[in-house]
C-alpha cells in the first residue's frame, strides 16, 4: 500500500505538468481549453513521429517538438481563441471542444488506431527502479518525471515573479484593460501564454508516450485528469496544481488496489468530493453564482 501511495505521489508530478498549461490559460485568459488533453496527445504523436519515423533520438525529438508546440499555441490563440473569447463564455467552450474533435480524428486519420509508445526507445528508463532505504521501490521514470515537474513549476514561478513577461502576464490576468493602460499589449501576452501552455501540454504528451501507450482518442481522459488536479489543488495556484495532482494520483493508485476500474473511479470521486466540500463551504446557494470564482485570484504563485 505504501508502494501504491508513493507511485501516486510521483504520478502527481506528471499530472502537475499536464495541468500547468491548463491552469495558466485559465488564469490568464479565463477560459478552459477543452482541447488541452488533445494538444498533449498531439505533442506525444509529434515526438513519436520524430522517433519512430524520422529515427531521431528521443531527446532530440522532444526538444524539436517543444518550440513547434509553442508556435502552435501562439497561432491557436491568435486565430481561434482570441476571436472566441470576444464573443462570451459559450463560444470558447464550443470552439475548443470542436478543436479537440478535429485533433482527435485528425490524429486518427494520420496515424491510425495503432497504439504507440516510446517505451522501447528510452532504454532502461521505462522499467528500471531504485530501491530506497526502507525497502520502498521507486520507478526511475516516475521519479525523474516528478523532479522535472518541480523544475518546470519552479521555472514558471521564476518566469512569473521575476521577469518582465511574467509581470505583464500577471498584470493582464488581473486586469487586462489596466495593463493596456500601462503599455502592455494584452493580445501579445495572451499569445505568449498560449504558446507556453500548449508547449507544456506537448511536454506532458511526451512524458505520457514514455510511460504509457498513446492512442488518438486519449485526449479527453488527459483533460479530465488535468482539470481534476487543478480543481483539487485550487484554481489559480501554481503549486496548488502540484498538490492537487498528488492527491489525485494517490487517490487513483489506492483505488486501483481495490479493483482495476477503481483507478479512474477513485480519481473522479476525489474530485467530486472536493467540489462538493468547496461548494458547501462557500455557501453560495443563490443565483447559480460560481463558487469556484471565489478562488479565482491569481495569487503570487
Amino acid at each position: 500500500m505504501i508502494d501504491a501511495a508513493i507511485q501516486g505521489l510521483l504520478l502527481g508530478g506528471y499530472y502537475a505538468i499536464l495541468a500547468a498549461g491548463l491552469s495558466l490559460m485559465f488564469g490568464v485568459m479565463r477560459f478552459i481549453n477543452l482541447a488541452h488533453g488533445d494538444l498533449a496527445v498531439a505533442g506525444a504523436y509529434g515526438v513519436l513521429f520524430g522517433v519512430l519515423t524520422l529515427g531521431l533520438p528521443v531527446w532530440a525529438a522532444v526538444l524539436a517538438m517543444l518550440p513547434l508546440m509553442a508556435a502552435l499555441g501562439w497561432l491557436l490563440q491568435r486565430w481561434l481563441f482570441a476571436r472566441a473569447l470576444r464573443a462570451g463564455f459559450l463560444l470558447p467552450l464550443l470552439v475548443t471542444f470542436g478543436l479537440g474533435a478535429v485533433l482527435q480524428n485528425g490524429l486518427y486519420g494520420v496515424f491510425g488506431s495503432d497504439t504507440l509508445s516510446l517505451g522501447n526507445h528510452i532504454g532502461a528508463l521505462s522499467w528500471a527502479s531504485w530501491t530506497l532505504p526502507g525497502g520502498v521501490v521507486v520507478g526511475q521514470l516516475p521519479a525523474l518525471t516528478f523532479l522535472l515537474a518541480l523544475a518546470v513549476l519552479g521555472g514558471l514561478q521564476c518566469l512569473l515573479s521575476r521577469t518582465r513577461l511574467g509581470r505583464a502576464i500577471r498584470a493582464t490576468a488581473t486586469d487586462a484593460e489596466a495593463a493596456q493602460l500601462c503599455g502592455v499589449d494584452a493580445g501579445r501576452v495572451h499569445r505568449a501564454a498560449g504558446a507556453i501552455a500548449v508547449s507544456l501540454a506537448g511536454l506532458a504528451g511526451a512524458l505520457l508516450a514514455m510511460r504509457a501507450l498513446v492512442n488518438p482518442y486519449a485526449g479527453p481522459a488527459q483533460l479530465i485528469t488535468a482539470f481534476e488536479a487543478v480543481v483539487i489543488g485550487g484554481i489559480g495556484s501554481l503549486w496548488g496544481t502540484l498538490a492537487g495532482g498528488i492527491v489525485l494520483g494517490v487517490a487513483q493508485s489506492l483505488g486501483a488496489l481495490v479493483t482495476p476500474q477503481g483507478f479512474d473511479l477513485a480519481g473522479h470521486a476525489a474530485f467530486l468530493l472536493v467540489l462538493v466540500a468547496r461548494l458547501a463551504g462557500a455557501r453560495r446557494f443563490q443565483l447559480g453564482k460560481p463558487a469556484l470564482r471565489t478562488y479565482l485570484k491569481w495569487r503570487r504563485a
Partner: peptide, 19 residues
C-alpha cells in the same frame, strides 16, 4: 452540478458521464 458555472460545469458534466 448547477452550482457550477460555465467551464467548470462543462467539464463536471463530462466527468459525470465518464464516472
Amino acid at each position: 452540478l448547477l452550482r457550477l458555472k460555465d467551464g467548470e460545469f462543462a467539464i463536471a458534466t463530462w466527468v459525470v458521464a465518464e464516472a
